[in-house]
Simulated assay, not measured.
Amino acid sequence: MSTIIQGNQVRSILFGVRVSKSYAAFAAETATLFTVTGGKVLVTSLVGEVTTAITVANTVKLQANPTTGTTKDLCAATDIGTTDTPVGDLLSFQGLTGDSILHGPGAVPTLKQPLVINTGTIEQVTTGTGPDGAVTWVLTYVPLDDGAAVVAA
């Protein structure tokens, strides 16, 4: 039996373009994950996979930092280290104002509603004393403006 449409093509039709960014070593900092250029994009999913266990109490949030305008939290700062978050756990949030980051082994919900992000950056803000761990973030998007794109920072 032949396959007419491949898995990556189905994903592109449903969610748009895929971009990934490995945040190799958590630190108490604001780290740029993705850069949005050329106009507005519609973020259809944003999921992280823990690649190094997170074992130290810390809070993590994601935010949109536009080139012009006000920085906006995409989710609430969430402690993901007091109760260890092991390798392979997934991280996500539902896209509603004030949502915490959800994490679990093998399954988490993704955005209930897509997010419109303007030109600028998407950042991970990590706080705490000596945070540890690493995450690979995968974002999918659809350009809303001609020429708009997202790249890993």
Rank of each mutant, 00 (worst) to 15 (best):
D84P: 12
I80V: 03
T68S: 14
G88L: 04
D73N: 08
S45D: 14
L42R: 10
L90Y: 12
T59V: 15
P105Y: 11
A76H: 06
D73V: 00
P66Y: 10
T70Q: 08
T67V: 13
I54Y: 08
G106P: 06
T67K: 14
T83L: 13
Q94I: 09
T71R: 01
S100M: 09
V43F: 13
H103M: 11
T44Y: 07
L96I: 13
T70A: 09
T78P: 01
A53W: 12
L62S: 06
I80T: 04
P86E: 15
L91T: 05
A64K: 02
A64R: 01
G106Y: 03
D84Q: 15
G88Y: 03
T67L: 14
H103S: 15
A76R: 03
T51V: 03
G48A: 06
A77W: 02
T51C: 00
S100P: 03
P86H: 13
L74R: 01
Q94G: 12
P66C: 08
G69L: 03
D79S: 04
K61P: 00
V60P: 02
A76Q: 07
V56H: 06
I54N: 11
G104Y: 03
V47Q: 04
L62R: 07
S100E: 15
V56F: 05
K72H: 10
I54D: 13
T78S: 09
G95Y: 14
S92T: 05
T67E: 14
A57V: 03
G88D: 09
L62E: 08
T68K: 11
G81V: 01
E49T: 12
G98E: 13
L96E: 15
T67Q: 12
V41Q: 09
H103E: 13
H103N: 14
G106E: 08
A57G: 09
A107P: 01
T55F: 05
A76K: 09
G69W: 07
A53V: 03
A107Y: 12
E49W: 05
T71S: 02
T70D: 02
V56T: 15
C75Y: 06
N58A: 09
A53C: 03
G98V: 06
L46A: 02
T52W: 08
D89I: 01
L91R: 09
G81K: 12
Q94Y: 08
A76P: 01
P86Y: 13
A57W: 08
T70R: 04
L96A: 15
S100H: 09
D99F: 04
T70K: 09
K72S: 14
N58E: 14
G48T: 05
L62W: 12
S45L: 07
T55M: 06
L46Y: 02
D79C: 02
V41I: 15
S100N: 15
V43T: 10
E49Q: 12
N58D: 02
C75K: 02
T82E: 08
T52M: 08
T71V: 12
T83I: 06
K72L: 10
